[in-house]
Design a binder for these strands. Structure first.
Lengths: 205, 205
DNA sequence: CCCATAAAATGAACATCGTTCAATATTTTT
DNA sequence: AAAAATATTGAACGATGTTCATTTTATGGG
């Protein structure tokens, strides 16, 4: 039996989440089970439930990690180069998101498979992590809107972001081949979307 | 024991799918189990597996029905009124999609939760049902492109369609509140997307 | 140092799931 | 009527998430 002084409660939580992350990496989401985690860290299955309300709760914590990495990805200098036009930065940001969806595929999928437990609202700290994702794009859109139109700018950010996500999602889950089987097709489509959207924004000024 | 002359194999398949559809409606996707279906139609669980390869196979058949209804929805006259400007039709089509996602919520979700069994490619007949979904939007976009640019038009259709889907998805799964908690916010966002995208198309002519 | 109390870890047990397949029941063919 | 073919069955298997009475470990006071 694991001795309870081996780790503090918080250390143990981190240990579980680290191992969960590894399991997803090696065996995919299907391989992520309470028993597998427990066995790997040398604890009994019941211990998981001393630390997390449920497996859904654990999935939520994994998603939190994923959202943090995604935020860092979208905040990276390659997508936020002040020396480059906003359009270039946006294209880079869209491609960064698509690369992220491929590189972190199982984690990225979990973000959308997650089901809220019953009618419970998503917790505030989690919603905060989601809302934060729009900030880098908002920063890029800012100069294109008068200061008085901040609300409209924020909507534009969410609409464009959602659009890129939709493109990425249908592409990545293999539901739709946008232009052809070409590997570059998602890049082309993404660039086309941003060019068109920005042109539309300027035209409607 | 059910007598095997009660139904032909095809009738039985339809019976199973009808009951599966009902179960999703009444108990949600979680209530859709082989045992529940079997019990409801007066057969044993094993019978399901005489008709379908697996539950995933059954989900695929349910998805096929959903895709058919969605196709009919997007083909409806309200979104394809020749007497109205294309932009109005597109806005109506986007709203029709969003209404569909709400009205058929569990079925609509299943379209994206479905996981391909192993590395098997999606079957051609299923891919056909997906590709067909773009046709109504392609018809609306057609007049905006020279005939020689058909490929570009098709890409535009898929990009705009994906964008609307992304908007709808993030809205419907409660991940993102686009403008506010307002009920009309998704309509506003969707209209904004289409106006901007079309303006961008014309500007880049 | 010992013992009472608190806390953590356990793992068997429960309900449920998808799935299999030998056995049984039914129909068709000979 | 017997035999072959086919459909249906349902117990059984190996999983899963989850619970919780029991056991183990740590702590603190006398």
């Amino acid at each position: 039996m694991a001795r309870r002084s081996d780790h503090t409660r918080d250390e143990l939580k981190i240990l579980v989440l680290d191992k969960a992350w590894q399991l997803i990496d090696s065996k995919g989401f299907e391989g992520l089970t309470a028993r597998a985690i427990a066995s790997e860290i040398g604890y009994a299955p019941g211990t998981i439930y001393n630390l997390f309300d449920s497996m859904d709760d654990l999935y939520l914590q994994i998603n939190a990690r994923t959202l943090d990495i995604l935020y860092d990805t979208l905040s990276a200098p390659v997508c936020n180069n002040p020396g480059k036009p906003s359009q270039d930065n946006m294209k880079a940001m869209a491609l960064a998101y698509m690369d992220f969806a491929r590189d972190y595929h199982p984690y990225w999928l979990m973000l959308f498979n997650f089901r809220l437990p019953e009618d419970r609202k998503v917790q505030a700290w989690y919603q905060e992590k989601i809302d934060r994702l729009f900030e880098p794009l908002e920063t890029l859109l800012q100069p294109m809107f008068p200061e008085a139109h901040e609300r409209k700018m924020k909507m534009a950010a969410r609409v464009l972001w959602s659009s890129v996500h939709g493109l990425c999602f249908l592409q990545e889950t293999g539901k739709v081949s946008i232009v052809s089987q070409n590997d570059a097709s998602s890049d082309i489509a993404s660039n086309f979307l941003i060019e068109t959207f920005l042109a539309g924004l300027h035209a409607n000024d």
